[in-house]
């Protein structure tokens, strides 16, 4: 996603994910690593019971997310619209069964089939109208309502996505709620622009469940409005800024990095300690 424009703006998914693009999902180790991390986290959020389950993978692509499912002994079916991506998945000999289908046209399965559904970086594609007869709102509703039906009661659907703006996010969540889902958003590392990841965590009926805890939000003060008097704020800033390279300055910097989910060395008594003066 770092390369400027968003893929959704370039071409419809079945054309954007052509052979060249699909090939990246077998050769580009960075892309593979990111996809694997995202799918591991999505499966963690699914909170599946300890026995083997039957899972739907929406926008399975080359089957990277499916492999994580296979590793945990689950059986899965993968849907994707791009023939090139599916071809790569068959070449990789993934365990799951594959289906070429457009999620905006509905999920073609009997009611109550799946114990859970995951989707990695796919749902935001539905916000685009790639053909003249496409209505994003209708397609989203069709997708969520048929997905709701195909899930067993009490099952979860976890979708990692890259919404372009808050309007898109609202459109997606609104249609999901309209289709009957409960649940909400889990946002990992909300303080970082790069590590921030948005998961839509949906529950299909059953007992009321609590949303899982997001990563990297330990001491973010949510739902609180800080007291903002101008003079007070100026004083705070003046007092709070520690001199550069001081121990406090280093600790603050490390804390900031931790909040963004980046790596840094643990705090010890040696952190920021002055070196001995050897002449």
């Amino acid at each position: 996603m770092a390369s400027g424009r968003r893929p959704e703006h370039r071409a419809p998914p079945e054309i954007f994910y052509n052979e060249d693009e699909a090939r990246k999902y077998t050769s580009n180790t960075r892309m593979i690593e990111i996809q694997e991390q995202l799918s591991e986290r999505a499966i963690e959020l699914l909170a599946l019971p300890d026995h083997p389950c039957f899972i739907l993978d929406i926008g399975c692509g080359s089957g990277l997310s499916g492999e994580s499912l296979t590793n945990q002994d689950h059986t899965w079916i993968g849907l994707d619209i791009s023939p090139s991506m599916l071809e790569v998945a068959t070449e990789r000999e993934v365990e799951g069964d594959l289906l070429q289908s457009d999620m905006g046209q509905g999920i073609p399965f009997r009611p109550g089939t799946f114990d859970g559904a995951i989707s990695v970086s796919a749902v935001q594609w539905l916000c685009n109208a790639d053909k003249k007869y496409h209505h994003p709102q209708k397609r989203l509703y069709k997708f969520f309502s048929t997905l709701y039906a195909s899930l067993a009661r009490g099952a979860r659907a976890v979708m990692q996505m890259y919404p372009e703006n808050s309007e898109q996010l609202e459109l997606i969540t609104q249609q999901a709620m309209k289709a009957g889902f409960s649940g909400g958003l889990v946002i990992d590392f909300p303080n970082s622009t790069k590590a921030k990841k948005i998961f839509l965590c949906l529950f299909a009926g059953g007992t009321t469940q609590e949303l899982p805890q997001a990563l990297g939000t330990e001491d973010s003060r949510q739902g609180q409005i800080s007291y903002t008097d101008k003079r007070e704020r100026v004083r705070q800033i003046r007092n709070s800024k520690a001199p550069k390279k001081s121990r406090q300055w280093i600790m603050e910097k490390k804390e900031r990095r931790r909040k963004q989910g980046r790596s840094c060395r643990p705090d010890t008594k040696f952190t920021g300690r002055k070196r001995p003066n050897s002449f």
């Binding site: 069964d97 289906l99 509905g106 073609p108």
Partner: peptide, 22 residues
Amino acid sequence: MKLLTHNMLTSNIIKGVKNGYP
């Protein structure tokens, strides 16, 4: 396509189709 998938698959996404199964 495995028969497990076939057992779950319907064609009720087509406009006007009620059951579409099996």
